Amino acid sequence: MCGFSNAWKLNREGMAACNEGDFDKAEENILKAINLASCNSRKIHRATMYNNLSVIYQMSGRINDAVQAYGTAISYLNPSHKGQAALIARMKGKIESLKDIAA
């Protein structure tokens, strides 16, 4: 069963938990949101949620997980779309920065 409005609610709650430093709750909420949104959301919405997941991983020190989540977010974006191409470029920049940290 799809629950897109519930997915966005979980996404917001996940980011609020992240801002409070509760990374476990944040991850749990975002993963639930991704699962709820996967059946009927636009790819840009899933990319946004994976981007948020990567932020949670980055803030909690899980650099490799953050890189992987950014990669998944990028896979949902269209490089031919001007706005999405800019997002891809920013995310690729973040990936490179994180790889430098992990090295």
Rank of each mutant, 00 (worst) to 15 (best):
M1A: 10
M1S: 11
C2W: 07
N6H: 04
W8N: 05
K9Q: 10
N11D: 08
N11E: 12
N11M: 03
E13H: 01
M15Q: 04
M15W: 03
A16K: 07
A16I: 13
N19M: 06
E20K: 02
E20G: 00
G21R: 01
G21H: 05
G21W: 06
G21C: 08
G21N: 06
D22F: 00
D22H: 01
D22N: 07
D22V: 01
F23G: 01
K25M: 03
K25F: 00
E28L: 02
E28K: 06
N29C: 08
I30R: 01
L31C: 05
L31F: 00
K32Q: 09
K32N: 09
K32W: 01
N35V: 00
N35W: 00
N35H: 05
L36Y: 01
L36W: 00
A37I: 03
S38E: 10
S38D: 04
S38Q: 10
S38K: 12
C39E: 11
C39Y: 06
N40H: 12
S41A: 15
S41W: 01
R42I: 04
K43N: 15
K43T: 05
I44L: 04
H45Y: 11
H45N: 15
R46K: 15
A47S: 15
T48M: 13
T48Y: 11
T48E: 13
M49T: 08
M49W: 08
M49Y: 05
N51S: 12
N52F: 04
L53G: 05
S54R: 03
Y57I: 11
Q58A: 14
M59T: 13
M59H: 11
G61H: 06
G61V: 11
R62L: 13
I63Y: 13
A66S: 07
A66R: 03
Q68W: 02
Q68I: 12
A69Q: 07
Y70V: 07
Y70D: 11
T72L: 14
T72W: 09
T72Y: 09
A73L: 10
I74K: 02
S75Q: 08
S75L: 05
N78W: 08
N78E: 09
P79N: 13
S80A: 15
K82L: 13
G83H: 11
G83T: 15
A85Q: 14
A85C: 11
A85R: 15
A85M: 12
A86V: 14
L87F: 06
L87R: 15
I88C: 01
A89G: 05
R90M: 10
M91S: 03
G93D: 07
G93V: 09
K94T: 12
K94A: 14
S97R: 13
L98V: 10
L98G: 09
I101T: 15
I101Q: 12
I101N: 10
A102F: 10
A103T: 15
A103I: 14
